[in-house]
Simulated assay, not measured.
Amino acid sequence: MIHRFNSSNYHSICDELASTDADLAAIIQTHGYPPFWSRPNTFETLVHIILEQQVSLASALSALNKLKERLQVLTPARLLLLTDEEMRACYVSRQKSGYLKYLAEALLSGQLNLTELEDMPDDQVRAKLVALKGIGNWTADVYLMFVLQHPDVFPIGDLAAVNAMKRVKKLPAETTKEQLLEIAANWQPYRTIATMLLWHFYLSAPREKRAAI
């Protein structure tokens, strides 16, 4: 059976983490609970996550909105009708245009079935996703966390989460990934929710401080 968190148990899991980690407790005390971030299990959501790779959330969202404006409904078949020039006009780079078309083809051919992923454990979901061109561990992590609500994922490739963790835990900048993963292991089996607390801290920090995180 696949374990998930949901809007009903979200705050109680935050409280459980706070009871064993004073730094996470301080985030809740200062900034309140993090939003319950979730996204539907759709082609549009995966397109959005791919667009978010290595760019600001705002620029990814404006590219997504441009695609939706042009296509009316963002489906794999409709996206494949766009030329490279039309994709560029929607602020989608040539590289990401290739990734999105590959994803659309995988869904249309049946190579990937999003509904089937809902009943798979983390490692199987990750294997299915990273087998696709343009999808790496970060994209798979975000999908597991936001879409499938799997509770125990720590996205070591996410700069905001990693930098917030270093600041919250007062760690030196040169702290290694291995050391960060070791600290995150203390949050099992709720590393996803701990990460959401870290993101909440990061997004709640004043803009000038955030730049220094």
Rank of each mutant, 00 (worst) to 15 (best):
I183G: 01
M145R: 00
Q188H: 13
G157I: 11
F146Y: 05
L180A: 05
L112T: 10
Q179I: 03
T175P: 06
D152G: 12
K170D: 15
Q188K: 15
T192Y: 05
L148K: 03
R167T: 11
Y143L: 09
V142P: 04
L171Y: 13
T139L: 10
E116S: 10
T139K: 06
Q179W: 07
A127V: 11
V153P: 14
Q179S: 11
V168K: 04
V142K: 00
R191L: 04
L148W: 00
F154S: 10
M120A: 07
D158Y: 03
K177W: 02
L112D: 06
R126P: 13
A161V: 12
A104N: 06
K166G: 05
V130P: 03
L117W: 02
L148F: 02
L171M: 15
A106R: 12
T195H: 08
L114D: 04
D119H: 13
V130H: 00
D123M: 10
V147G: 01
I183P: 01
N186V: 15
K166F: 09
D158K: 00
V125Y: 02
P155D: 14
I156W: 13
G134I: 10
K166R: 13
N113K: 06
A106T: 03
D158F: 09
N137H: 13
V147I: 09
L117N: 03
A184M: 03
A140N: 02
A131M: 11
D141F: 13
A161D: 01
M196E: 15
L144I: 11
A131V: 15
D122A: 08
E182C: 14
T115C: 11
A184W: 00
M165I: 06
K170M: 10
R191I: 06
A164P: 02
Y143C: 08
L103H: 01
L181P: 03
V168A: 11
I156V: 15
M120Q: 14
A160D: 00
T115M: 10
E174N: 13
D123V: 12
L180E: 08
M145V: 02
Q179Y: 04
H150P: 03
E174F: 12
H150V: 11
I183D: 01
T192P: 13
L112E: 00
T192S: 14
P121K: 09
T195K: 03
